[in-house]
Structures are given as C-alpha cells and as structure tokens.
Write a protein that binds this DNA or RNA. Structure first.
Lengths: 215, 215, 215, 215
DNA sequence: TTTTAACCGAGACGGTACGTCGTGTCTTAGT
DNA sequence: ACTAAGACACGACGTACCGTCTCGGTTAAAA
C-alpha cells in the first residue's frame, strides 16, 4: 500500500486490519456519497478508526481514493477464450462491469481530474491503476501473436507505442461510453466495439444482425 | 446559457456583459488554480462581479464550469480535407488541441465525475458538450458516404447506434490518452489512431515508417 | 416625519398614505420578528411598497424604527387625577403599558444601543421620543406646584436639572423593570415606586398593606 | 463561563487562554466598532483564534457579548463609607463609571434589546449581570439596617420586592441618564439622585447650594 | 519483567470556502 | 418626479471540512 515498518521497528506496529477496513469504508462512502461529498471523517467513522490514523497512512483524500479504487481492478483477468475477438470482448466486458459500479464511477474520473495538476498523484494512478490494466493488452497481443492472429512486432519501441494506443482506445471507449455518454457498455455495444477495433469502421454496417456464438 | 428574461420584464435587466466576463474568469481560474482550488468568490472577483450574481445565474460550481468549458468546444469545425482519413485526423487533432489546454483538462473530467451522481448535471453536459461534438461524427460520416468511402446506412436506429459508438471511440481515445495516460495526442499518435479506426488492429504494424504527407 | 415637498414641486407627489402604511408595517414587523430579524424588504412588502420608496424617505433601519416607535408615545397623556401621587401613578402606568407592547420592547432599546455611536440618531431619539416624554414631567410639576404640593423653583437652571433627574428616575425605573428585570410594571409596583419617588426609601416598609383608593 | 470539560476527558482540552483572549477581544471590538458593526470574524482575529473556536464555545454574538460585558461589573464593590447616603453615592458612581465606558454602552442595551425575544438570553443576562448587581442592594440595605438608618423588614417576601424596586430605580436611573438622555452621571447628579432616593421629591428644591463634603 | 517508542481514540485547533441573506444603490419600465 | 420590480456590489452569517495538534491510554518489541 504505502508504508511497511520503515526502518526503526520499535513501538507498536500499525494495525494491518485498519488498512483493509479503511479502503472498504472508502468504497462504501463513495457509493453512498460520491467523491465530492465524501469526507475523511466519515470514512474514519465507517472504518471504526480515528481521523489521525487515516492521515498517518495517506497524505490526503486523493491518494486514499486511488488506492481504494485500484483494488477494484485487481479482479481483471484475461481468460483464454480462443480468439482475439473473444478475448477482447471478454476483457472489455469485465472492465465495463467494474466501471458500472458506483464506487468506480464516482472515484475514478475525480482523481484523474485532480491528477492533471498533481504529478505525484498522476504517478500513483499510473502505477496503481493504469499499468495494471495495460498488462492485459500486452498479454492479449502476445496470445494473439502466438495464435497467428497478429503478426510479430519487429521494433520493440513501435510495439510499446502500439500497445499504448490500443490501451487508450479500449479503455477510453469504455470510460467515455460509461461516464460521459452515461450509457451501459453492454454485450451488444462491446461486440460492435470489438468489430471496429479489429477490422475498422468499414466493417460496421455490414452485419447488423450477425448471429453471435458467445455471451 | 441559462436565463433569457423569463416572462415579466419588470426591474433592472441582467447584465449581458457579466455572463461573458464570468465565463472567461472561470476559465482563467481553471488555468491558474484547477478545479478543486477554484472558488466562486475568486471567479467573481476576477470577473468584477459579486458572488451573489454568480449564484443568481448558476446553481453551483459544476454548472458554471460546464458552461465555461463548453464554450471551448465552439471552435471545433470539420473542414473538408478530401478524404475520410484526413477528416478524422483533422478533427481529432482539433479535439486534442482543446483538451491540451489546462482549462479543459482541469474542468472537464471533474464535472464528468460529479455528473455520475447528478442527473441534471449529466443532462447539461450532454446538451452543452456531448451533442455539440457528436454532430461532427454525423457530419463526417455523411460526407464520407457522399464520397463513397462508406456505404449508406439502411437502418436509422442502427445508424444512430453506430454514430454513438464511433463518437465514444474517438472522444474516449483522445480523452484517455490526454488525461489518464497523460501524454500528448500529437500528429503521429493521431495518424496511428485514425488508421486503427478505419482499418482495424491488423492494419497497424504493417507500415511503421509509412511516409506521411500531412501534419 | 422628515420630508415635505422640499422646494421644486414638479412630478408625481409622494403618497402620504405610504408613510402611514410603512410605519404601521414597521411596528407589525417588530412584533413578529423583533429588531434584529426585521428587514427593510419585509417592511416594504408588508406596506405594499417598494424598498426604494423606503430609502427615499428614511436613511436606514434605525431612523425608520425611531419614527415607528415614537408614534407609540403619542398616546401618553397627563389627566388631572387630583394629587401628585395619583398623577405620577397614572402616567407611569401609561408608560408601562406602552413598554409592555412587543413593538416597543423590541425596538426601543435597540435604537438606543445604536445611538451610542451615532450622534444624529441620538438627536432624533431625543426630539422624537425623549422630549415628548419629558414634557409630562414639567407639566406634572407645574400642576403640583399650582396645587401647593411642591414649592416653586426659584432657579430656572436648577429647575431644568431637577426635571431631567426626575425624568431619568421615572423612565429609567420603568424601562429597567420592564426590559432588564423583565417583569411587569403592574399597579402594585407602580404604587410602591410612586411612594419612594415622593417620600424616599424610608417610607417604604411601613405600610405594606395600605388601603388603596385608585386602580 | 460556559463549559468545564463536561464528563469524558478524551481529546485535546480546550485552551483556557482562548476564553480570556476572546472576551478581551470582544470588549476591544465593542470599543472600536460598537455592537452592530462587530463581527465574530473580527473578534476571532483580534483574539488570535479561529472563528470556529468562537462558535464552539458560544452560541452567538449575543451570548458572547453578555459574557464580555458581565466581566466589567466584576469590579463593582460596596465599600463602607459610613452612611447609607454615602454608600449609595459610592456605588452609583462606580456603576456610572462602568456604564460610561464605550464597551458597556455599546453592548449592554443591545443584548437587553435582543433578550426581549430570547428567554435563554434573558436568563443569561439575569444570572451574569443583574443578580451580580442586585446583591449590592441587599448588602447595602443590611448595612444600613445594622447602622439603624433603615428599619428591619419583617416580611421576607416584601423585603425581596422592595430590593427589586430599589434596584430597578437605581440601575434604571443611571442607565437612562447615561444611555437615553446621553449625559454623564457625574458627582452632582449622583448626589441629587441619592437625595431623592432617600428622602423623596420634596427634599429636592430645599438645599440647592448645600455645601458638600465628599466628591 | 520493565522500558520505551510508536501506535491509537478523541476532539480542539487555525484556516478556508461554502451558500444564504441583508444592505443600500442602480437601472429599468410604467404611472 | 414619482413608483414597483428586481439586479447589483458588498460583506457578514453560521456551517462544514481540511489537515494539524495535543491529550490520555494501549500495545508489542527491545532491553
């Protein structure tokens, strides 16, 4: 999380249970109140902890919420569904399911907004949330290349750039659909999105009622 | 905006100049302070206006910032650059340029985050910002269809759904690149993005050093 | 009151009815809200008049309330009850009855408090309220001297000083009883007070159950 | 004052020095600004304290000023000057000296005016200010009875009633002279007042130029 | 065992912004 | 020239939250 019994080890150690309780309380408060009405005193009370304990472990509301929201993305997995298209649809649906939860909705964009003026927060978001998600893109591409669905990348620099692009397209689309357009990224939407991602715009209008074998 | 001399015309009319000054002051404050440090008193002072005048015209900080940021998107145009690919690159670059400005960065995601718990704010964002942008997608598609680059849409419902999808992909990618990944959506990125959008993932690694004639 | 069609007489004349309505509305507002909650907008609304009209005729809340309260003391009279003792009791009872009304209670001490830092207001209170009351003291003394109950005053300076003293003792006792001690200045209290005033402290404990022929 | 570490003693204790500083700052603000211009923020700043600290200890401006003014009356004493007349003159002069101070002038009548619509405030004034003063009346009478200047009171109910009356006459006269008539209660006035109080109106005009041996 | 040092709860503290309200001025249109 | 209506600049209100601090009291590793 953030500490780890720094150097001197005398004295009473920090309660490990408190961390868990605090992060859970933060998510609960996000659900009930949303980002802007959430207060650290309220989180502390919900967690059965003093406000001081919160400040001893996190520098502020932003950092706390990043950690609380980051845990939501721990459950993201990339099970092998047999094809690149199916893998994409699977992971996008998972991502959409997480973003549909109010604690993610409320918290995620708020800390991103804050991070535009706070480099440390930006870095924390990158390591706690973004990188964790980006690994799935790399993993999915490797799997597709192993299957022969995608050609190998000769240039590693270009490969990284491409992975970043794909990540922004995938994550951005789901986030925008869910938060800005404020509509559900359901199965139908995900299938259409995966088609565009794989084959481009031209592929779109051709098979509106195409029979689907998954979901 | 929000008012317009409701019905009765008695009393001193609202100053039209104040609206302009307030929205400009809001953007200036966003640049200097960012969303979370922005105070309505500061905005009022910058605009040479009393705080009460702000509250008479906007219900709160969120609504004010939506209007202030929405004006930034007024300059979005879709000049005809001859091909769908060039049109996409052009408009995406414009969108990226706006999002690169600190007043947009600070304000946009913050109000989106707030809107997850406020239906009225969500609606305001939709009409003031989202719909304004979405029109460009419809316009670009119509132009591409006229050129023969895209087939006609037989089903209007499906056509709307598709436009929504494209909009979320385009806007989402730029927003995510700019705000979450926190990197510039520059010419190179935009070209790569447009290629994926048009022809899909498979098109990506084939022409890494393809000569480019625009930007 | 304060104006009177100054010199130029062109244009629409001021409504005389408005003055009456405003002062009555002020007293009503004093009863309902008290001094500190009273607002000029509320008074204007009660009087069916615009706030501007109020400011055109009075400089502020203090002056308005002085005038509104002053009218309450117009009803003070000094009917000849045959003896100095009876006259005193009669006028004190009248004064107590006025001070018992909530519009006087709320307003009077408030403007006095304000007047400690505002010479113009002090002067307005003196002419509108204090002098009006003090005349009764002079009148009562003259009558008592005519009856032979009090000796004539040889020195006019000393006579004025004495009248002021008596006035402060009488008015002060009733005001303090009513507002500070917050108890009613009823018949029994007034009789005891009159006895002290006429014959001094020593007269007090002797006839507690003395038969009374008036009130 | 008002608190006293209620029951549980957890948490940081309230600063005792703050109370003193706040009351002194309140009196200073009364001197500089008067009641109506006095703001709690200004008092807080003068006391080097946050506005919240004020609200934690007093419910409002009225209560704060009552406590600040009440302390002024702590210095009232009743030194034995040998005769009832001298005792009265002495204590009245002290009372007048306090009322002559601008912090008392500004604050006292204002809170009395407010108290006409606030029973809790009335009670606070009674216990903090009125009762403290009334004790001097009882003490002075007991001393005069011991000297044989006044007869003993057989009926305790009547004795209390009489003390109240004397108190209202004395305090009321000084208050009215100082605040309403807005003139100084100086030595000459006090001597005349004491004569009336002791021997009644009839005693007044007889010795206009009587030689005085005190003041 | 006894230190002993860091932990913990509670809650007061100095600050700052909030959104509301009242004041006194002004700018309209209407009488 | 007056009026009613209401917008305006200003500034105080009382509340809420922030992040810090100061207490009394606990807890576990080090001495």
């Amino acid at each position: 999380m953030q500490s780890s019994t720094p150097a001197g080890r005398a004295g009473r150690p920090r309660s490990a249970a408190a961390d868990t309780a605090i992060l859970a309380a933060t998510r609960a408060a996000l659900v009930d109140l949303g980002w802007s009405k959430l207060t650290l005193q309220d989180v502390a009370t919900r967690a059965g902890v003093a406000k001081t304990t919160l400040y001893r472990r996190w520098v502020g509301k932003n950092e706390l919420v990043v950690d609380a929201v980051a845990e939501l993305f721990d459950e993201l997995r990339l099970p092998d569904r047999g094809s690149l298209a199916a893998d994409i649809e699977g992971v996008v649906l998972q991502f959409a399911a997480i973003l549909a939860r109010p604690e993610a909705k409320s918290g995620l964009m708020a800390v991103v907004a804050e991070s535009t003026r706070d480099a440390a927060l930006r870095e924390r978001i990158r390591t706690s949330i973004v990188e964790r998600q980006k690994r799935l893109v790399l993993e999915g591409r490797a799997r597709a290349q192993a299957r022969g669905e995608l050609p190998a990348e000769p240039d590693p620099v270009e490969a990284a750039r491409t992975a970043d692009l794909i990540f922004d397209v995938v994550a951005g689309a789901v986030v925008h659909r869910t938060l800005v357009s404020a509509e559900a990224a359901d199965g139908e939407w995900v299938r259409s999105f995966a088609r565009v991602l794989l084959w481009g715009l031209a592929s779109l209008p051709h098979q509106p009622g195409l029979p689907q074998d998954h979901e």
